[in-house]
């Protein structure tokens, strides 16, 4: 498993050279608190995000919870919720490390083949991950839609930076995209 720092070290070691340009890592350190807040935003809302993503996936495809569907009976629905949480957990690890290696090695490696063998439909899985991607972006920006959330509106705190952590939103989205392309 690598993080942003060890990734730089491994690539420098390939040419036995000292690390030339530290500016990217210095930027990582300087915006470290934002990153921790982003990870916290995902971790603190994880169970809500997962259940909403799975519920949204089922809403759009009711066949999943009818007899013969992949979320019927409860045993398989529970497995589905568990897998949603696992994916989100590894994305949160990748976001904390600033590198996708933990996600690739421990979650995505062989996931497509496993799901194919178990008969889990890739399109539904991808849809749930897409929903989680949108939720993660909203939570990191801490900018939930008041019109849609209504009484359930929940904010982490008042925003500290004007760009609402745009770079971290993009980074988190790239990890979800990685999951999606690994499944497709």
């Amino acid at each position: 498993m690598l993080d942003a720092f060890s990734r730089a070290v491994v690539s420098a070691d390939a040419s036995t050279a000292p690390i030339g340009d530290l500016s990217a890592l210095k930027a990582f350190v300087a915006s470290g608190n934002r990153r921790l807040d982003a990870v916290n935003a995902i971790a603190s809302n994880a169970s809500c995000m997962v259940s909403d993503a799975i519920a949204g996936m089922i809403c759009e495809n009711q066949g999943l919870i009818q007899a013969g569907g992949n979320c019927y009976p409860n045993r398989r629905m529970a497995a589905c919720l568990r897998d949603g949480e696992i994916v989100l957990r590894y994305v949160s690890y990748a976001l904390l490390a600033g590198d996708a290696s933990v996600l690739d090695d421990r979650c995505l490696n062989g996931l497509k083949e496993t799901y194919a063998a178990l008969g889990v439909p890739a399109t539904s899985t991808v849809r749930a991950v897409q929903i989680m991607k949108a939720q993660a972006a909203a939570h990191i920006q801490d900018d939930p839609s008041e019109a849609r959330a209504g009484a359930r509106l929940r904010k982490m705190g008042s925003p500290v930076v004007n760009d609402r952590c745009a770079s971290l939103v993009a980074e988190a989205s790239s990890y979800f995209d990685r999951v999606i392309s690994a499944l497709g």
């Binding site: 498993m1 993080d3 720092f5 060890s6 070290v9 904390l96 490390a97």
Partner: peptide, 12 residues
């Protein structure tokens, strides 16, 4: 590669 971040992630 052992660092503070990877150690924390491995434990979690």
């Amino acid at each position: 590669m052992k660092s503070v971040v990877t150690t924390v992630i491995a434990a979690a």
